[in-house]
């Protein structure tokens, strides 16, 4: 029977939440198309991760090898190339669309004959055709793409789309996947992790974030936003473009490549709502979005939306607060 495999993502001894999201998708697909959902843990010591996953998925397979402690696509692919051959026709392999999945899956696709679709938000199996929905053009259009999955397919799934599933009533089984690595001459080497330089603020702990994006337009407007944040007793955060331009430090960046935040109030101004940003706002109490563009994707995730020039609103807010004190 064809299966749907979830490759577990882990880093520094911790399992990523995204793995559970993909398990949710795997189970959904399993139910819909009669595929067996399975998780695969590749690690130097897979037991703990496998135990954790067995709470959510009926079958966990492990591949253990000292080379798998830190992720390098070369090491993973050495095991996964023979592994996918064992998976059987029509099997689907899921990875999160993260630094891990983006590095691994297209490469694995090139090295096997399995097709790959990246950054998908929905999957559907139509006979042997695997169809996916993907968000393109800055989230302004959704595309449907498909591949021939008769031999199997590789997929990276957008993070934050699926919710972690409930625990199973009966824990899943754990067993080793008897596969050994293909011999390779290694051309890459993992050196180490580096924490992005920490600044004086910790946006992950803030209960109120005033977040600014591309709409701030100009470095000279940053102090204005900072002043408003201060007046509102909010912490200033931002989206990626602001950091890319070096107008604010990396420590203030909300999003997948920045920090994941859980404020009580998230007030986003001039942020259009790229998914990499939205994915960094986990469980904001109240999400308010201000954007000039009524079609900005951010309005699809915010609780409250305001179609207005952010500067006009900043002025109005400042005036109102000034008046209250």
């Amino acid at each position: 029977m064809a299966s749907v495999y979830v490759i577990a993502e882990h880093r520094k001894g911790e399992l990523g939440d995204v793995t559970l999201e993909n398990i949710a998708l795997a189970k959904e697909l399993g139910e819909k198309y009669g595929l067996a959902p399975k998780a695969i843990v590749l690690a130097s010591s897979a037991r703990a991760f496998a135990e954790e996953l067995a709470d959510y998925i009926p079958e966990v397979l492990t591949i253990e090898d000292p080379s798998l402690e830190n992720f390098l696509y070369e090491d993973y692919a050495a095991f996964l190339r023979p592994a996918v051959d064992m998976f059987g026709p029509g099997s689907i392999v899921l990875c999160p669309h993260t630094a891990f999945g983006m590095e691994l899956m297209p490469r694995l696709s090139a090295e096997t004959s399995l097709p790959c679709i990246t950054d998908v938000t929905e999957l559907e199996l139509d006979g042997t055709r695997l169809r996916a929905k993907r968000s393109i053009y800055n989230g302004k259009i959704v595309s449907s793409v498909s591949v021939d999955a008769s031999k199997g397919a590789l997929v990276t799934v957008r993070t934050g789309v699926y919710q972690a599933p409930d625990k199973l009533s009966a824990r899943g089984t754990i067993e080793g996947l008897g596969v050994s690595a293909e011999p390779v001459r290694k051309k890459t080497e993992f050196i180490g992790y580096r924490e992005a330089p920490a600044g004086e603020v910790d946006i992950t702990q803030a209960s109120f974030l005033l977040s600014i994006g591309r709409g701030i337009k100009d470095e000279e407007n940053i102090p204005r936003a900072a002043r408003l944040a201060e007046k509102m007793h909010a912490v200033l955060s931002c989206s990626r473009p602001v950091v890319d331009k070096k107008w604010l430090g990396k420590e203030r960046q909300v999003g997948t490549s920045g920090r994941t935040v859980k404020p009580k109030v998230y007030l986003a101004m001039g942020i259009s709502g790229a998914f990499q940003h939205i994915a960094g706002v986990k469980g904001a109490g109240v999400f308010i979005a201000v954007n000039r563009d009524p079609k900005a994707p951010i309005f699809r995730v915010a609780d409250y939306g305001v179609v207005e020039d952010m500067f006009k609103l900043m002025d109005a807010l400042e005036e109102k607060i000034g008046g209250e004190r």
Binding site: I141, V142, S143, S144, V145, V147, R300, G305, V306, E319
Partner: peptide, 27 residues
Amino acid sequence: VLELESLERPPEGKEAEMISGSPDEIA
């Protein structure tokens, strides 16, 4: 290998509750 089948507008989905009015009122 990968075929682009169609494009569509993103689903409306959950929409934010829109606040309208003058900047003052919104603030």
